[in-house]
């Protein structure tokens, strides 16, 4: 799949933003006054900035509001609604915190909204039968652990961050090990795609057009896959390898800054791989993966 920068930025930063808002909703921490302003600004810059970035890859962004209408069937629609409701409720929570009070029941509702938002985001990818690598429980598990773990890191919740990011590293490892063979195990082949598999070995002989097209640009992204091993290593080290020992020792302002920066860069790298390594079955029609 084409790793569109807008979608990578969206899933990374809105994930972190909603992760931080989740902890603020639980009152962990429950800052007031200017400290609260700082925390909520970070959460909202991440969440809202990510959502705005996601509109950049739309063909007709001016109609984005229509995307809130089909929540009965569409995970993308559900995500949009969950995000907006959560951000509105979170705004009230932030306003109250600014004036010195933490509204617990509202906070819990905001935290729940954050979970629903992150879950619906993950389901946009996990629902797709056409991308076998994504259609697995590890996709939502990864989105949850990275969002809540990164949020805990931003919220200065050392123990929770340590536990969640450790879990995240394990889930990421499982996602890679199982995901690498899932396309082959999905049963979709050039033979089933063309229905000619019973007659013999099917090979794409002539493409339908001499140049590239939308399908190849969007779904058959092979640039950089050859560096996948090292990129996985870099992503793992930055997202988990650097922050985890820091969390295990102690968070100070300086080390927390290093941990957060490293984690964000690592997640960006992992998210890039999440798209770049995902193979869509339509590539089979072109003899490509």
């Amino acid at each position: 799949m084409h790793p569109a920068p807008s979608v990578i930025a969206f899933t990374t930063f809105s994930g972190l933003g909603f992760g931080l808002l989740f902890w603020l909703g639980l009152g962990l921490p429950a800052p007031t006054g200017l400290v609260a302003l700082g925390f909520y600004v970070i959460a909202y810059v991440g969440a809202v900035g990510g959502l705005l970035a996601s509109t950049f890859h739309l063909g007709r962004p001016e109609r984005a509001a229509k995307a809130l209408t089909q929540w009965r069937t569409s995970w993308l629609s559900r995500e949009g609604i969950a995000a907006i409701v959560t951000l509105l409720l979170g705004g009230v929570l932030a306003l109250a915190a600014l004036f010195g009070s933490y509204l617990a029941p509202l906070g819990w509702l905001v935290s729940l909204g954050c979970l629903v938002t992150v879950g619906t985001t993950a389901m946009i990818y996990a629902q797709l039968r056409t991308v076998p690598r994504w259609r697995h429980w590890t996709t939502p598990a990864l989105f949850f652990t990275l969002s809540l773990g990164g949020g805990a890191l931003l919220a200065n919740q050392g123990a929770a961050a340590l536990a969640l990011l450790t879990l995240g590293a394990v889930v990421q490892f499982i996602a890679w090990v199982t995901g690498d063979t899932r396309f082959d195990r999905s049963g979709t082949t050039t033979g089933s795609a063309t229905g000619l598999g019973d007659l013999g070995e099917v090979r794409a002989f002539l493409p339908p057009h001499s140049g590239p097209n939308y399908l190849l640009r969007e779904f058959v992204y092979v640039v950089g896959r050859k560096h996948a091993f090292y990129l996985r290593l870099i992503g793992m080290v930055l997202a988990f390898g650097v922050p985890l020992p820091i969390l295990a020792v102690e968070l100070t302002h300086l080390t927390a800054g290093v941990a957060v920066l490293s984690h964000v860069l690592g997640v960006l790298c992992l998210r890039w791989l999440f798209f770049a390594q995902a193979e869509h079955v339509v590539g089979l029609y072109y003899g490509k993966r």
Binding site: L58, G59, A64, T130, A193, E218, F219
Partner: peptide
């Protein structure tokens, strides 16, 4: 009503939709 989000093309296994 189309916003050009491409998700329908992602969901189609046949490559029948093009933005």
């Amino acid at each position: 009503a189309c916003i050009g989000c491409s998700l329908c093309a992602w969901a189609c296994p046949y490559g029948a939709r093009e933005l």
